[in-house]
Amino acid sequence: MACVVAGVLVYGFVEDSRQGLDPAPTPTPSPLASSGESERLTAAAYAEWLARVDLVECMAERGYPYEPQLVDNDGALGSIALFLGVEPTTATPEAPVPALRQPDLYLGRGTTVSDNESGNTAGCVWNRPDLDLDDHAAIAATVAQAQGDATFKSAVAEQAWVAQHPAEVSHLFALLRPDRSAPVSDDTAAVTQWEQVLEEVSAVASRHQVWVPSVRMAANQFAQESGVVEDGTGVVLRVGDLATALVPGVYLSRADRIQCGPITISGGIKYPWGTDEGLADLMDSLAAACNGLIAAGFVEGETLADIYGT
Rank of each mutant, 00 (worst) to 15 (best):
V169T: 14
D284F: 12
R180W: 05
A288G: 11
L242F: 08
A160V: 05
K270T: 15
A146E: 01
I269P: 03
A155K: 07
A203M: 03
A280D: 15
V162N: 08
V250A: 14
V212Y: 07
G240F: 00
W161Q: 12
Q159C: 11
V239H: 00
L242C: 00
L176E: 05
K270C: 09
V169A: 12
A155R: 13
R177S: 13
H165C: 08
S185R: 14
E158G: 07
P248T: 05
E225D: 13
T192V: 05
W211D: 10
A205T: 02
S206H: 07
S206F: 05
T151K: 11
G268K: 02
V184F: 02
A182F: 10
G274Y: 11
R238C: 01
V169P: 13
G227C: 06
V229K: 00
S154E: 13
Q209Y: 04
G278V: 09
A218K: 07
I258C: 01
A218T: 05
A245N: 00
D281F: 05
A218V: 05
D187W: 08
M217S: 15
W161Y: 15
Q164R: 15
Q209T: 15
W161S: 12
A155C: 09
K153F: 01
V191F: 07
Q147H: 10
V212F: 07
R207T: 10
S170I: 15
L242W: 05
V215P: 05
V210K: 10
A144C: 04
G249W: 12
I258Q: 10
R180Y: 06
F152Y: 05
V156R: 03
D276L: 04
Q145C: 07
I265T: 02
V143E: 08
E168N: 09
W211Y: 15
D231G: 03
W161R: 12
C260N: 02
D186T: 06
A150G: 00
V210S: 13
D276V: 05
T192H: 08
A218H: 06
R177A: 14
A219M: 04
A255R: 08
A219Y: 04
T233V: 11
T264Q: 04
A219C: 06
I258W: 01
V191C: 10
E200N: 08
F173N: 00
E277N: 13
Q224Y: 02
A167Y: 07
E230R: 09
L172H: 09
P213E: 08
W161F: 15
S185F: 06
I263K: 09
E200C: 07
L176H: 06
S181D: 14
A144I: 02
C290N: 06
W273P: 02
D231Q: 05
F173D: 00
A190I: 02
A289P: 14
A144S: 15
V156Q: 00
G240Q: 01
I269E: 01
R177P: 00
A167V: 09
E230Y: 08
S226V: 03
A203G: 04
V156D: 03
L279I: 04
V143F: 10
A203Q: 02
T275M: 08
I265F: 03
V204M: 11
R238H: 01
W194H: 13
A163Y: 03
T151L: 10
